[in-house]
Amino acid sequence: MDFSALNPVSLMVSLIIAATPILLAAVGELVVEKSGVLNLGVEGMMIIGAIAGFAISVETGNPWIGMLAAMFAGAILALIFGFMTQFLMSNQVATGLALTLFGLGMAALLGQSYTGMKPPSTPHLNIPVLSDLPVVGSILFSHDPMIYMSIALVTGVWYFLNRTRGGLVLRAVGENHDAAHSLGYNVVLIRMGAIAFGGACAGLGGAYLSLVRVPQWTEGMTAGAGWIALAIVVFASWKPWRLILGAYLFGGVTILQLNLQALGIGISAAYLSMTPYLITIIVMVIISADRRRASMNAPASLGRIFHASH
């Protein structure tokens, strides 16, 4: 076996592409959870985004309009969840799961006439000189714009949560909704905003899948990516920067195991396929064992029902 056939540069490029849909969905869910809401419907919102983005791109011929539509569709679906959990105070875990079921079915229905079509292609960044640099050029300067968007989004979320008043309020709502309420903040409205943002991000992640990573629409194409996104949020201990670590680690191990197989490594493929999940668990254990306080970062009101009773 010749490990020199593994080209770290192109491995990096592949893993970034594989990780981006998960990263996009995860950054949205992080904001939702920071506001104290647990939405397990990420898979449903992603797939709705995948079909909405695909369909609108095909109709308009413009992938960017498609991406916007995907965000819109994800947000709409999320608002159903928001209405139910925030106004009707339904159980968040069950409502989220129902949302997944609903989203998967809805996307399949909407997508019936779009199977077998080709979306307009999404242009890649090509900066003269920079993109042509060896190694750095391919890793840093030659992706499609969505990848930079995803990093910018993580940065933006980090900035918002930690450096702005709005972020402080959002976190306060997630830590103790009753206290936030008595300080005069509109808990329900803030959470609805977070939920819609989460839906938009998940929708965008789905659209990245159907427009860039695979470029096609097929029923059930998210194939569990939403669940991985949820796990990545927990993995990151609700810290935006760690989302990148989690998503890229997961994507990286996935890509690496496929490459190792192509190299002809003598480990059974079934066991190799387990590695992304196992390594995520192991790293999580190390993080939580090493810094006990960090792992207690879960918003205190996560999943709890709020009702303004005055």
Partner: peptide, 16 residues
């Protein structure tokens, strides 16, 4: 797919 939309709707209403 329509059946799973239907099931999702039922769950929504039951929870709501």
């Amino acid at each position: 797919a329509a059946i799973s939309v239907f099931q999702g709707m039922m769950l929504f209403f039951l929870l709501a």
